[in-house]
Amino acid sequence: MEFLHFVRRALVAQFNGPPPRDEFVRHALDAGVGSLPLLTLLTIFAGMNLSVQAYGTFVRFGGQDLLGLFCGVGGIRELYPVMAAVICGARIGATLAASLANMQISEQVEALEVMAVDPMRLLVAPRLWAVTLMLPLLCGYADVVGLAASYWAATEQMGVNGGTFMEQVRDIVHLGDLAAGVFKGVVFGWLVAIVSCYHGYRALKRDGAEGVGVATNRAIVHSAVLCIVLNMFLSALLYVR
């Protein structure tokens, strides 16, 4: 109930006019640009690994030419959006939860209330907008980087024909799949932001520094679990005919 009440207040704050610009830009840059190095590094290795594992299996029955198909379906439809959500979600969620929890325990949120400034509007709404808009971009970015890494590993390391690989990708991955990935990113982004803000916001002064740690931990764990579980339902909704 407490969470639903928070969600209701957050939605009212989020859609009650544009978010404070400076706060939005700051969080968008942190969530988006700040996540790029980590996401790039991990997606490159995940993409290469996808090729390596698939090749090891497919080559047994002479199906190595299907590598592009597998990397397209498995990567773009499933792996990269979830990876972006979990990796960036952990990073972004930890930052959001820790910053809000710290503001709670040091009475900064109460200070806003006393100054007749709505903390949901000033603190939560820009964070929600920033992460909801940045995560789909990160998902798209992860698609490109991951696929490029799979392609490189397939062609340079395992000798798969590049033309065949890309043909398979084009056959299986359509614009709708990319749009679905972006849609998943929007859903994951909002989910990561609301869960993290919730845990940060409900920290209490009496919890002290430990409260910040607990809020951060819960934000990371709950965001990751929810994204992975929700991904299955979204995939069923988007791809099962």
Binding site: S106, E107, A111, V114, M115, A116, D118
Partner: peptide, 23 residues
């Protein structure tokens, strides 16, 4: 009610025990 409370709070200034400055 929230609007009224905010209007009322504009009559107040508050010094918190630890300052509560925005970091």
């Amino acid at each position: 009610g929230r609007e009224q409370m905010f209007a009322l709070r504009r009559k107040f200034g508050m010094l918190f025990q630890d300052g509560a400055l925005f970091d």
